[in-house]
Nucleic acid binder design. Structure first.
Length: 144
DNA sequence: GTTCTAACA
DNA sequence: TGTTAGAA
């Protein structure tokens, strides 16, 4: 989960983001006003976007291009956030249910539990297809 | 040179 | 959503 903290690191200004996403500064700022993204701020009050923010903006763009309005995008993203939270909670619980000895070893959770979790998450993924996965994969090249 | 906020012939 | 004005 150390990857998450890196992806949420405030890195680039709006100029970079607009080139990365093909969105106008106006759009990016507007989406923030609508609560779709929450970029950090520098000392000079300038927005600093993380990889997650860019990822999110690409998702927003993708939905908008499909004809989804702000309200719709809001719902999709909110529902997705809730889903992420659940998945996280499940992983936490799975980790806590393991003996301390196992945690220190290479296998944090048992194979059966791991299979169960993966199976569940795969079904959830297929039930909610995301075109943005491709775009996100492309973008990750810049940061890895 | 960039980005920010606010406002609109 | 585009664009512009004035400030940081």
């Amino acid at each position: 989960m150390r990857d998450q903290i890196r992806r949420s690191m405030p890195l680039f200004p709006i100029g970079i983001v607009t080139k990365l996403t093909e969105l106008t500064p106006r759009q990016v700022r507007y989406y923030e006003q609508q609560g779709l993204i929450q970029p950090a701020r520098s000392e000079g009050n300038q927005r600093l976007f993380s990889f997650n923010d860019v990822d999110r903006l690409l998702k927003i763009k993708s939905l908008m291009e499909k004809g989804v309005n702000i309200a719709g995008v809001k719902e999709v993203l909110q529902q997705e956030d809730l889903q992420k939270a659940r998945e996280q909670q499940q992983l936490q619980e799975a980790a806590l249910s393991q003996p301390a000895a196992s945690k220190a070893s290479r296998s944090p959770i048992s194979d059966t539990q791991l299979r169960r979790l993966l199976k569940r998450q795969l079904s959830e993924l297929s039930a909610r297809p995301n075109q943005s996965h491709l775009i996100r994969g492309e973008l990750s090249r810049f940061f890895h």
